[in-house]
Simulated assay, not measured.
Amino acid sequence: MSELKQRISDEMKAAMRAKAKARLGTIRMILAELKRIEVDERIELDDARVLATLDKMQKQRRDSIEQFNAASRDDLADIEQQELLVIKEFLPQPLTEAELTAIVNTAVADSGAQGMQEMGKVMALVKPQVQGRADMGAISQLVKNRLNS
């Protein structure tokens, strides 16, 4: 079992003991998604895949919050916000703007990319380094800006 998945399981047990229903529900949802992936693909998840799944769940919560706020459904947005806070606990510390810029600049130099048509090469180098630590939309914009300059 991956180290991160084990940590999530341990947190579930702690939430059960503390009778923290909202937290417990979110952690169970995370574990259910991880189990679904393992069963569907017949694999044992490693930390990188768990991080990718958590990152995807985080993005889903952000999108939902945005849509609920637009529809004036603050009650549902609050629930999604609480879930997002629990999910973020298991993700690594976010990267700073300077760190992201340095990673993008290094990836552009390493790939030898000259224009937008080679953006895929740069993103392939950047993505593993920032998975779960930065919004991929923001990274994509950074890469576009760097390749256009």
Rank of each mutant, 00 (worst) to 15 (best):
M1E: 06
E3G: 08
E3I: 04
K5Y: 03
Q6C: 01
D10A: 13
D10K: 11
E11T: 07
M12A: 12
K13W: 08
A15N: 09
R17T: 15
K19N: 04
K19Q: 14
K21F: 07
A22S: 11
L24I: 03
T26R: 04
T26G: 08
I27Q: 06
R28Q: 13
L31Y: 00
L34E: 02
I37D: 06
I37Y: 13
E38F: 04
D40L: 11
E41R: 14
R42Y: 14
R42F: 06
E44W: 01
E44L: 13
E44D: 11
E44T: 14
E44K: 15
D47T: 11
A48C: 02
A48S: 11
R49Y: 09
V50L: 10
V50F: 08
L51F: 12
A52H: 11
A52K: 14
L54Q: 07
L54D: 07
D55L: 11
D55M: 05
D55E: 15
D55P: 10
M57K: 06
Q58R: 14
Q60N: 08
D63Y: 12
S64D: 13
A70D: 10
A70N: 10
S72W: 01
D74H: 12
D74K: 12
L76W: 11
A77G: 03
I79K: 12
I79A: 13
E80N: 13
E80F: 08
Q81N: 11
E83R: 15
L84M: 07
L84F: 11
L85G: 05
V86M: 06
I87N: 00
K88N: 10
K88Q: 13
Q93P: 01
A98V: 12
E99S: 03
T101H: 10
T101P: 00
A102H: 07
V104P: 00
V108A: 00
A109F: 00
D110A: 08
S111Q: 01
S111C: 02
G112S: 05
A113H: 02
A113S: 02
G115I: 01
G115W: 02
M116E: 09
Q117K: 10
E118N: 06
M119P: 01
G120L: 12
K121T: 04
K121M: 11
A124H: 05
L125M: 05
V126Y: 00
V126W: 04
K127P: 00
P128H: 02
Q129A: 06
Q129M: 04
V130K: 00
Q131I: 05
R133N: 04
D135V: 03
M136A: 01
G137C: 01
A138V: 09
I139D: 02
I139M: 07
Q141K: 15
L142A: 08
V143D: 09
R146K: 15
